[in-house]
Design a protein around this nucleic acid. Structure first.
Lengths: 244, 244
DNA sequence: TCTTAATGTGTTAGAGGTACATAATGTACC
DNA sequence: GGTACATTATGTACCTCTAACACATTAAGA
């Protein structure tokens, strides 16, 4: 086997379309939504023989003329009608036998969308929301992909103000807390949660109240526009804090 | 364009080797080392026309018969002779024009190795260590890949005891602190550093002292064998701590 | 009007982090 | 041999952040 295949044009040319350019590349999207106080994910019933009756993530092969990072956007537009969604690459899975039909390497992305959004139109009736907690297995290695993306989501959620992609524009602190609890799978203290959220300075008080709730209505908030990362600590302090 | 290409065997068969299985897949390794109180990375001079005189990361095309995650191990064995190295997948880069010779998508890994290790044998004389701080640009999009991996390393370093892969077996606390400072690019308080490190309970005191140093010798330590993740907090507390 | 259930706010004790001071030990030079 | 110096080793005070918890407020419904 030649060693530095990447380095010489001549070698590339020889390898092309023969033994090396022989791997399929796909993307799979873990599309998270939030409904009924549950974290959900968009799945489709697999119609592969090998996975009859099982569900799988939404994905597609990457086209030769599109950037890798464009592909999941295309999948999302095709399947949900949503543009401008939050999307993040997580991991690439390249096990030899992960796809029964041949060598297909897949790059996994996760996405956060607002289930209530009026533009959301799931075009195919085979596509449905499933509660993440109820999913035991999926087609291919999609359960592994889901778990990996969920773990990443849980990390991200604590560092960046991304959960708001899952909520409608106006929300109460209780709704926000319910969402965090659904994602993290734990209960949080209401008073400490409120304190920490206000410290982050992510929210704007809308001076509006909830309506049609069977209890004392809460204040409504929205995410600050032009949300900058505001650090309460200096860069050096942050590093110091994080080190070791 | 057919939509669910992944779903039907028949469609897969048709697409195979025609328009879709037409993308090259490679891996690129950001191999970090530590020498002279500097974080370094292993580079090779590119011999592509387009990048004459520039350096690039070590990489290779993924073979059709090997797992994606196996490929970087192979590259490392070929180029450094090292087995059992610390290796972690970081990100996959799939821009359309990132490779001048055609469509090549690459998955980036970073690796931590001990430069002093006796088995380390850089087989090719074109491969050399470069101080990370001195690298201004690289061939292809390799500077972006390097920066991405460095950012990930800086995150990881604070959560997991991985820096020890860069050190020889026995080391002093001063050496360990120098390493952290080199990776993070900041200075740390010596006394607080010692305190936090001992709290982590990662180290074993060897009851040996440095030798041949032009000052008071420090104690030597090594990484605890069978290092388990020991949480001083319960899972719930950790979640609580991390949330928001 | 009273009960109930949720929202909104404050307080306290403890843990962890930062900044800083001091003693101990070995080298190098006079 | 003695002294200055650099570095290791350890301790302390202050501050911040967090977890745990108590109480008052507001609206709905009987």
């Amino acid at each position: 086997m030649p060693k530095r295949l990447l380095l010489k044009n001549a070698e590339i040319e020889k390898a092309t379309h023969s033994e090396y350019f022989n791997i399929g590349l796909s993307v799979d999207c873990v599309i998270f939504g939030y409904e009924d106080k549950q974290l959900k994910v968009l799945l489709i019933e697999s119609d592969l023989e090998e996975f009859r009756g099982m569900y799988s993530l939404l994905g597609d092969l990457v086209r030769p003329s599109e950037d890798l990072d464009e592909a999941p956007y295309r999948v999302l537009i095709d399947r949900t009608g949503l543009k401008d969604v939050y999307l993040e690459q997580v991991h690439t899975f390249g096990g030899l036998n992960r796809h029964p039909s041949g060598r297909v390497v897949t790059t996994a992305y996760y996405s956060l969308i607002d289930v209530q959004h009026h533009e959301l139109q799931i075009t195919e009736h085979e596509v449905h929301w499933h509660a993440v907690n109820d999913i035991k297995n999926l087609a291919f290695d999609h359960k592994l992909i889901l778990d990996t993306c969920l773990a990443r989501l849980r990390q991200q959620v604590m560092e960046e103000p991304i959960v708001f992609n899952l909520l409608q524009e106006k929300f109460s602190l209780r709704q926000l807390q319910d969402l965090y609890e659904a994602i993290l799978g734990i209960e949080l203290d209401r008073r400490n949660f409120r304190k920490r959220i206000t410290l982050k300075n992510w929210l704007v008080d809308l001076n509006e109240m909830e309506e049609d709730v069977p209890h004392r209505p809460g204040k409504l908030y929205k995410l600050r526009t032009q949300l900058r990362r505001e650090y309460r600590m200096s860069d050096k302090q942050r590093m110091q804090k994080l080190v070791v």
